[in-house]
Design a binder for these strands. Structure first.
Length: 426
RNA sequence: GUGACCAUAGCUCAAUAGGUAGAGCACCUGGUUGUGGCCCAGGAGGUUUCGGGUUCAAAUCCCGAUGGUCACCCCA
């Protein structure tokens, strides 16, 4: 009986980790640099938590994309489809609102949605999620966008575009939505079925339709940025002002809307060109009412979800080579039982001294041990045979040049330390 | 959930007009006695995704399931 991964689930293989390590180490370096603290909510939560945050218009709810089941005590629980709800719950439950404001939090981990897999879309995917809580200044929106921007920029991406929009607040959005609905009602019979449905269920979604017929009508459709109340307009203007000052490349996209309904004011995405239809590398925005909706004090917040798989896919597509993964630098080769005992000791000493070292198992020929060292990209082979043992030395062979020299057994650890990491090739 | 295309070795792919499967890469072993990379020789690895059907005979034709890919839906 052979098994395979579930539909939409993937193994992340050793070769993939070249990219994953590159991305994740850059990500954590950046969150540190921006002053974010890590928080890791559980993967499973009560289903009600996710439903509350999502509301009715979200596909996660609508299309039953949640992985839900009953726990042994009958509680319905779900694999998290997004980070924000769990982070908000943890924030309230643990009293993080008593931390000095603003509270900057980030998480990295898998999310689960029962979707049909497609290019750049899987049932399990990993996100870097960042939230900035307790601050309504537009500079906070900016900071979240800067974090995402810096990640892509420092990973070496080219040709990404920041898409920005403001969808208003509970004051100004309802009139806008009404205007939008009114506009499309006139053309209702001309709309494709999908958009007629969207107009009824989640009118904002009509804005990012892929239907040509609807897109033609969108040119003259009302835009949310023209309906903003004074406060929202001011907020948006301040944000775009900062972005301009930073020479930050972005486009205001009046058709940008987000999947989760809790967003207010700022929404943004970063688009890449190598991902097919799933072109969003990250998405985020402001969600001022969310903490309150899970039982906490009124707290403004901004956040972003950054898809790691999509970054890895795009890195590959753009031909960006991550640094090679660390592999053993030293391998202690041995001939004969006595030498092997010594090799075990040396390998142990090297590892204790913090250096990557391995040794061949069994008692294969020196030739096959060298072959193994070569294939594992070992930098130095430390050869320990009868002769070396008798003289109290180790023959060290540089596997890149083939040069050999002798080091006394007593000095081998300090010799290795002096040669690790090895001098880089000019 | 809907649709299109696809499914042969770990990977990339062959297999004339239906006649029970091959190559390259990768992997393992050797090319004598203590020296890798190149080269050479050999080896292992497949119930041709699975289950039915047609046929003397199916990787090949038909049906179904499963999975993959891409798009819709939706989203990272």
């Amino acid at each position: 009986m052979r098994f395979q991964t579930l539909k939409g689930f993937n193994d992340i293989l050793p070769d993939d980790f070249r990219y994953w390590r590159f991305v994740l180490s850059k990500a954590t370096e950046l969150t540190d640099r921006f002053g974010f603290m890590q928080i890791d909510p559980p993967i499973l939560e009560e289903t009600r938590l996710f439903l509350r945050g999502l509301q009715e218009g979200s596909a996660v709810v609508l299309d039953k994309e949640l992985y839900s089941f009953d726990d042994h005590d009958g509680t319905n629980i779900s694999l998290r489809p997004e980070f924000t709800a769990g982070v908000m719950r943890a924030y309230v439950e643990n009293g993080l609102h008593t931390y000095p404001k603003p509270v900057r939090l980030f998480s990295i981990g898998p999310l689960f949605r029962h979707e049909k897999p497609q290019a750049g879309r899987f049932r399990q995917h990993v996100q870097l999620n960042a939230e900035l809580l307790g601050e309504e200044d537009a500079a906070a929106d900016l900071e979240i966008m800067q974090l995402a921007y810096s990640l892509y920029h420092e990973l070496g991406f080219q040709g990404l575009t920041f898409q920005l929009n403001s969808i208003g607040c509970s004051q100004c959005r309802p009139p806008y939505i009404q205007a939008l609905v009114d506009y499309f009602q006139v053309h209702y019979s001309a709309l494709p079925a999908v958009d007629q449905r969207r107009l009824r269920v989640n009118p904002l979604r009509v804005l990012d339709t892929k239907e040509k017929a609807t897109r033609a009508l969108l040119a003259d459709a009302p835009r949310s940025i023209d309906y903003l109340c004074a406060d929202c307009a001011q907020h948006f203007q301040t944000l775009t002002g900062y972005l301009g000052d930073l020479d930050f490349a972005y486009e205001v996209n009046p058709r940008l809307v987000r999947g989760f309904d809790y967003y207010v004011r700022t929404v943004f995405e970063v688009w890449g060109s190598e991902l097919g239809a799933q072109n969003a590398l990250c998405g985020g925005g402001r969600y001022d009412g969310l903490v309150e909706s899970v039982g906490g004090p009124p707290t403004p917040g901004v956040g972003v979800g950054i898809g790691i798989e999509r970054i890895v896919l795009s890195l590959r597509a753009q031909g960006i080579e991550p640094p090679a993964l660390a592999h053993p630098q030293f391998m202690t080769l041995h001939r004969g039982a006595a030498a092997k005992k010594k090799a075990v000791q040396i390998t142990h000493q090297l590892r204790q001294a913090g250096m990557p070292a391995t040794m061949p198992f069994g008692s294969r020929s020196l030739k096959s041990q060298l072959k193994a060292a070569n294939r594992s990209h070992v930098h130095y082979a430390l050869i320990l045979g009868e002769d070396e043992l008798a003289q109290g030395i180790v023959t060290v062979r540089d596997m890149t040049t083939g040069e050999q020299s002798e080091v006394t057994l007593a000095d081998i650890v300090s010799w290795a330390q002096a040669h690790w990491p090895p001098p880089t090739d000019a």
